[in-house]
Simulated assay, not measured.
Amino acid sequence: MRILVLYSHPVETSFNASLHEVIVRTLKNAGHDVDDCDLYAEGFEPALTRQERLDYHDTDINQANVASYVERLEAADALVLCYPVWNFGFPAMLKGFLDRVFLPGVSFKMRDGNVIPSLHNIKKMVAVTHYGGSRIRAFLVGDPPRKNVKRMLRAVIKPFAPVEYHALYDMNNATDAQRAAFLKKVEQAIARF
């Protein structure tokens, strides 16, 4: 299976970097074709420009500045997101990727004013993340990151495709043992890919 791993963290010594390493190694060991897209290392520019917004609905030209990323997304059979939760959302780098690459004509098509999801090449999606705050705190604010993956992104991939969400909550107070246990849980989940 060809798997696009979207990784979004600026610090190579972070816990998120450890998660990323486990994901990529485990997928490769299982024989998958891994396209490891480290958004920071690749220098991805997350800001949608004025011209890109003006061209947003023009499917003849809207992909011009991100064509290589669109090709990688459309070539994938599955998608793995690895990122931290910051301020109950995606990091700006990952959010910018979604804004600039999940375009009309890519992740959806417009027909008579209706949105038609079109990333049907993505047959499975997994998100691996961690929150600084506790699960109850996330619950009290509606856990937007979980909903963004389980609802918003799920809506544009193949209908009924499995979507997994693995999160370590309360990272600010996590012990070494808790982080190690989460790494193991992620490794086991990815090995079942």
Rank of each mutant, 00 (worst) to 15 (best):
residue 35 D to V: 11
residue 45 E to C: 10
residue 121 N to C: 08
residue 27 L to W: 03
residue 42 E to W: 12
residue 193 F to Q: 13
residue 8 S to I: 02
residue 41 A to C: 04
residue 65 N to W: 01
residue 7 Y to V: 02
residue 168 L to G: 02
residue 97 F to W: 07
residue 72 R to V: 07
residue 138 A to Q: 10
residue 108 F to Y: 12
residue 139 F to H: 13
residue 5 V to K: 03
residue 38 D to H: 10
residue 179 R to S: 05
residue 145 P to G: 04
residue 80 V to Q: 05
residue 155 A to T: 00
residue 45 E to V: 08
residue 96 G to W: 01
residue 64 A to G: 09
residue 174 A to D: 07
residue 23 I to R: 06
residue 87 N to Y: 12
residue 31 G to Q: 01
residue 183 L to K: 07
residue 185 K to D: 15
residue 114 N to Q: 15
residue 73 L to N: 06
residue 128 V to T: 03
residue 13 T to Q: 13
residue 146 R to Y: 05
residue 83 Y to H: 09
residue 89 G to N: 00
residue 180 A to G: 01
residue 181 A to Y: 12
residue 150 K to R: 11
residue 34 V to S: 00
residue 61 I to P: 10
residue 136 I to N: 15
residue 14 S to C: 00
residue 48 L to D: 01
residue 189 A to P: 03
residue 186 V to W: 04
residue 65 N to L: 12
residue 136 I to V: 15
residue 155 A to M: 11
residue 135 R to K: 12
residue 18 S to K: 15
residue 152 M to S: 13
residue 148 N to Y: 14
residue 5 V to C: 04
residue 2 R to H: 15
residue 114 N to P: 02
residue 113 G to H: 06
residue 145 P to Y: 06
residue 41 A to L: 05
residue 25 R to G: 07
residue 104 P to A: 05
residue 115 V to I: 07
residue 3 I to G: 08
residue 54 L to R: 15
residue 59 T to D: 05
residue 173 N to F: 02
residue 108 F to M: 03
residue 12 E to L: 09
residue 137 R to E: 15
residue 184 K to N: 15
residue 170 D to C: 09
residue 49 T to G: 02
residue 179 R to F: 09
residue 16 N to D: 09
residue 57 H to M: 12
residue 181 A to E: 11
residue 133 G to S: 14
residue 11 V to D: 14
residue 113 G to C: 11
residue 94 L to Y: 00
residue 87 N to V: 12
residue 64 A to N: 02
residue 101 V to L: 04
residue 117 P to H: 01
residue 68 S to W: 05
residue 95 K to I: 07
residue 171 M to Q: 09
residue 165 Y to V: 04
residue 42 E to I: 05
residue 132 G to V: 03
residue 29 N to I: 13
residue 155 A to I: 10
residue 101 V to Q: 04
residue 59 T to H: 03
residue 102 F to T: 06
residue 127 A to D: 08
residue 45 E to Q: 14
residue 126 V to L: 08
residue 110 M to C: 05
residue 73 L to C: 02
residue 16 N to L: 10
residue 107 S to I: 05
residue 80 V to D: 07
residue 51 Q to P: 10
